[in-house]
């Protein structure tokens, strides 16, 4: 048998963070009136969605760097 090696599936909290970030990318938490507000030229809800996906990208860089063992 091999020695256990580190990988993201061994850390359940990582997937909780992903669930929260993907949920934040969907504008379910904003009232319909928020559509009239714009930020950086886009409706506010679009900009917030893009910010959430940017957070997913940064988090993924961290997860890959920290929790994916290169032992072969």
């Amino acid at each position: 048998m091999d020695q256990p090696v580190d990988e993201p599936t061994r850390h359940p909290w990582i997937w909780v963070v992903y669930a929260v970030l993907f949920a934040a990318a969907i504008p379910w938490y904003l009232p319909p009136e928020a559509a009239s507000t714009t930020w950086l030229g886009f409706p506010l809800w679009v900009t917030l969605s893009l910010v959430a996906t940017f957070a997913i990208a940064l988090f993924t860089v961290y997860v890959i760097g920290r929790f994916w063992s290169e032992d072969e």
Binding site: E7, T9, I26, F42, L50, I56, T60, V63, E72
Partner: peptide, 27 residues
């Protein structure tokens, strides 16, 4: 309309999906 910005989320989900099995499969 702008709702298609959902495409950013689902294209990212593909890369996140790799993290579920690619480390083991590559080895």
């Amino acid at each position: 309309g702008y709702a298609w910005i959902m495409s950013v989320s689902f294209m990212m989900a593909i890369v996140v999906g790799y993290l579920l099995y690619a480390p083991k499969l590559q080895r």
